[in-house]
Amino acid sequence: MLELKDVHTYYGNIHALKGISITVNDGEIVTLIGSNGAGKSTTLRTIQGLIRPRSGSIVLDGIALDKVAPHKVAELGVAQSPEGRMIFPRMTVLENLEMGAYARKEKSGFQQDLDRVFSLFPRLKERITQKGGTLSGGEQQMLAMGRALMAHPKILLLDEPSMGLAPILVELIFDTIVAINKEGTTILLVEQNALMALSIANRGYVIQTGEIIMSDSAASLKSNEMVQKAYLGIE
């Protein structure tokens, strides 16, 4: 579904992504793991169109994304729960979710998708009229993901959903991610928490200082010695 080939992205003169190639097939959960500053968020931002790659190609179901403006990328079916959640603090939960539906093609399924989000995240329904800025960290993460789901996307990009959350919430979030995937949404998951990420993913890529150094099935990566030492904390 989504294919990145040899993508190079720069921040000014800093070479952030040095020839990234990633493939995500329909229905998969693919994870991109790596340490801080490796380029994980940059990859997602490049896919989303917030940064334009200097070279390389990004193709979604046959449509090239690399020169497309971010709002058009969203219209093409790429939704993201961004790093830091980025929910709209002074808008209510409902309004945030409504905004999520801004780019969707078929407006008719709005109520259905709304119900689906609330069934996935019942806590959001409880707080439906609360302002986004007053939610807790975990609730904000749910809202960010729910908002992305409201776009009824082809592919869902998740940027470090576990960041700053208590372990029990992390479990909840990841269970929900699996549920979303089971309902048919393709997911590209970027995570620092490699253990959780690899336990739910089908395949994984390891990125280090802007380069993909490994690409394999999640299970293989999990049992890989180097990965275990560097990212799983297993000696």
Partner: peptide, 14 residues
């Protein structure tokens, strides 16, 4: 939305 978080707004197709 744009006033509150421009990048998020971009990502939502605004």
């Amino acid at each position: 939305a744009t006033a509150q978080n421009r990048d998020a707004a971009k990502m939502l197709g605004i």
